[in-house]
Nucleic acid binder design. Structure first.
Lengths: 262, 262
DNA sequence: AAGTGGTCTAGACCACGCA
DNA sequence: GCGTGGTCTAGACCACTTA
């Protein structure tokens, strides 16, 4: 016999999965569940609900009750190359249309000079004593934070340039880098999936049970030396990360190009 | 004043972060903590510990105690993993090297015919009555599951072909698709970050507090019609996802290609 | 046998949003 | 003021692993 709290979680999880409890629906109260499962110790019911909270399926809204989580994923496209008329447009217009998206973007920008952490130092190939400049941005949609975007560049490169302006740079900071002789021609993306730190929970106002993707972009100049590292922290419940790939003719001589299939 | 259970979690989290409690270390027992924080209700202590469990920082090993999670087979060595030329190669050789390179890969393959779920149906542009074939694979390294890889194709396309062989296909299933006149030339990747379902926890033997990336690859033929959908479920604690991008000359006419920086 | 965490009981008081 | 979830008390018995 399964423990009561697991039965509670399993039953509710199934109701959420099959649509009996659609997104936004109110769940039974703790008292309801206590009665229904004959347990009558609140902790047992709460233990079951906490499973679902930590799975990101429900959120408690005190003192209104528990509600099925509503997700509004935004498309997060590290790439920017959609020039065919692709079927994926259907997928995403659908995703976005269903959320009725007229949210206004905004962002906070802070620029400072710091000692790089090991992640940044390694990717920028800096020595122990080198300093970096960092543009920290918290990007919002109608006030709701939806990702963190911290760009790091060697201080020796960007010092005194417009890159360090703590405001939007109309022609783009990458244009500034190009003007400094460091045009970006190649990028390496690494994506780590993990639970957020308390700091990230605070900055992004994350609910419990929300994992994040840490998206580290290292960009290189034409001589293959690194120019900039950007660390994006994107909440799993607010984004889908999208890439498009086209068959590269240079792959022809390879035995199998697997496309992620095997 | 913060609640006791949060103080417990905060204190332990800090000790884990600063190395006082290194990976693999044993935490104080519930009884120890009860005494130390003067709370003497087990539930309070357990509430604090459960925070850390759900953050993926610690794991309970009954009845030995709680231990700091040992993970991140992806931690980079302070070496030259970012050399010139294709850096991603270095990352992966490093990844394998750091995990003890002699692990033998294996996989279970099952093939069946099912009604597609909405995710698959939409991406394959199927009607309500169309069926799909699915190759479900659980891929292992020395017995430890490290990802799930389910490929879906229209039954009408692959029926009777080698694609449906429930075993490794030496020349690759994509070659089989090419022989069927549906060579894959383009792919759309979507990455969703979320907590795993109980089913995934079981198949991948995930610890608590381990998020997953659901990596959906839709592949297209030369005529831009979808051929196959592959859903990879990859545990966050065992993988880093890497893409490399090269500046596309066709992007020149665009005002700003952002490289993920803004 | 001892010690650990897993589950559960039967209460208590509090903080907060809403009617 | 009422109902909700948030926190906490002070116990109980059980399952499992190791000594």
């Amino acid at each position: 016999m399964k423990p009561i709290y697991q039965r509670i979680a399993d039953d509710l999880r199934e109701q959420i999965a099959d649509g009996t409890l659609p997104p936004g629906a109110k769940l039974p109260t703790e008292a309801d569940l206590r009665e229904k499962y004959g347990t009558s110790a609140r902790s047992t019911v709460r233990q079951g609900l906490s499973l679902l909270v930590n799975e990101g399926l429900i959120v408690p809204q005190r003192p209104k009750g528990y509600f099925v989580r509503e997700i509004r994923p935004l498309v997060y496209r590290p790439q920017d190359e959609f020039r065919r008329k692709p079927p994926e447009v259907d997928i995403y217009t659908h995703l976005l249309a269903s959320t009725g998206d007229e949210r206004r973007p905004a962002q906070d920008i802070e620029v400072s000079i710091v000692e790089p952490g090991p992640t940044v130092r390694k990717r920028l190939q800096l020595s122990e004593t080198d300093l970096v400049a960092v543009r920290r941005r918290t990007r919002r949609l109608d006030g709701e934070a939806y990702n963190l975007n911290d760009s790091y560049a060697p201080l020796s490169l960007v010092e005194g340039s417009e890159w360090m302006t703590p405001a939007d740079v109309a022609r783009g900071t990458n244009t500034v880098l190009a003007e400094l002789g460091r045009e970006l021609v190649r990028a390496l993306d690494e994506i780590y999936v993990r639970m957020p730190t308390p700091e990230e929970v605070r900055r992004l106002d994350l609910g419990p049970g929300t994992p994040v993707a840490e998206h580290v972009v290292t960009t290189f100049a034409a001589d293959d030396s690194p120019v900039q590292v950007t660390i994006n922290v994107v909440p799993g419940d607010r984004h889908v990360i999208v890439y498009e790939r086209v068959k590269d003719p240079r792959d022809e001589d390879r035995p199998r190009s697997n496309w992620g299939a095997e």
